[in-house]
């Protein structure tokens, strides 16, 4: 593990511990630690194990999956603006997930929601990658993503329009805004296998991403199997993003901000970008979720809303000051 990754991992652990201390009722460190060791009062254990820890771990898992997917997609498409949210992958996954809610499949079919979210993410990634590899144009790629996002949003609006009752409407709004509030360990365990499998696929195909920095033609000349590489990244990013959406709904911009901040620290090497991007993505989302919880607003802000409020200006800034074509 590189020094950067070690540093980020320690930061992530510290932030998660911090997230256990803060909330509507602040808990001191010694009570949190004894609750973690099952030595505290029932109330403390409940707060730490059933409310705060699952929530923070969910934020971390979602951030890691999106951070790594963003880094991998940027490497594959050779575009610093590629990201599951921008490319419409998250929106499509959220749409598919909402369909299972709308048709009431979540209670009857186990794994229906994460499977649907993953399927949606894979479909969207395939569409975008196919278009991207055909046109080679950065602008076209982003436009296709925007189109896909809008289309998914339109279908989502249709679902909401047809929602049978206010409760399912509220459910769907939650998916669109993105949140990790009230997540249980069971929710976490449902999504984690997909997220981890996706990240594993991305991690083992990281070397090819370095070669792709020189363009596909050169990468093929260097001995990279392009078809295999593309499939691996699409599969890995689809699995990880789908899992993230299944757990937290659509949360944008993590996948663009985290790799962008890390990239200069790994000498712009796409193969070394994945792990630190995942760690930083996790750290950023846990931090943002702490912010959501401690901000004194009447209604808790949704994590996805905060992420977009911070991420969208950064996206514009990155787009405005790109150095190479």
């Amino acid at each position: 593990m590189s020094r950067l990754s070690l540093f980020l991992a320690l930061g992530l652990i510290a932030t998660i511990v911090l997230s256990l201390l803060l909330g509507s009722v602040p808990l001191p460190l010694d009570r949190v630690l004894s609750a973690l060791a099952f030595q505290a009062s029932v109330g403390d254990q409940l707060v730490v194990w059933d409310i705060r820890l699952p929530r923070s771990l969910a934020a971390a898992l979602v951030g890691a999956a999106l951070g790594m997917s963003g880094a991998a997609l940027q490497g594959l498409l050779r575009n610093p603006l590629a990201e599951p949210g921008i490319l419409g992958v998250s929106a499509t996954a959220a749409l598919f997930a909402s369909c299972t809610l709308y048709f009431g499949l979540t209670s009857s079919v186990p794994f229906a929601l994460p499977l649907a979210a993953v399927a949606g993410a894979l479909v969207a990634t395939l569409v975008v990658a196919a278009a991207a590899l055909r046109t080679q144009s950065v602008v076209t790629l982003i436009l296709i993503g925007v189109g896909l996002s809008s289309f998914s949003a339109a279908l989502m609006a249709l679902l909401m329009n047809l929602a049978p009752n206010p409760f399912s409407l509220a459910d769907m709004v939650n998916w669109m805004l993105g949140t990790v509030a009230n997540r249980s360990m069971e929710d976490l365990l449902l999504a984690a296998p997909f997220a981890l499998a996706g990240m594993m696929v991305l991690f083992v195909s990281r070397r090819g991403l370095a070669a792709l920095a020189l363009g596909e033609e050169t990468a093929a000349g260097l001995g990279l199997d392009l078809t295999k590489q593309r499939l691996a990244i699409i599969l890995g990013a689809g699995l990880a993003t789908g899992a993230a959406v299944a757990l937290a709904g659509a949360i944008g911009f993590v996948g663009i901000v985290a790799p962008h901040l890390v990239r200069p620290l790994v000498r712009y090497d796409a193969s070394r970008l994945l792990v630190p991007s995942a760690l930083l993505g996790a750290l950023l989302l846990v931090l943002a979720d702490i912010g959501v919880r401690v901000l004194p607003t009447d209604f808790e802000m949704k994590l996805g809303v905060v992420a977009s409020l911070i991420g969208a200006p950064i996206f514009i800034w990155i787009a405005a000051r790109r150095r190479l074509a």
């Binding site: 575009n79 920095a213 050169t218 000349g221 001995g223 712009y268 190479l324």
Partner: peptide, 18 residues
Amino acid sequence: RARLLAYLPQQRPLVWPQ
């Protein structure tokens, strides 16, 4: 193949300031 033949294509895009 890549250990026997090196290829310098016409299009040589660089994305990152490596």
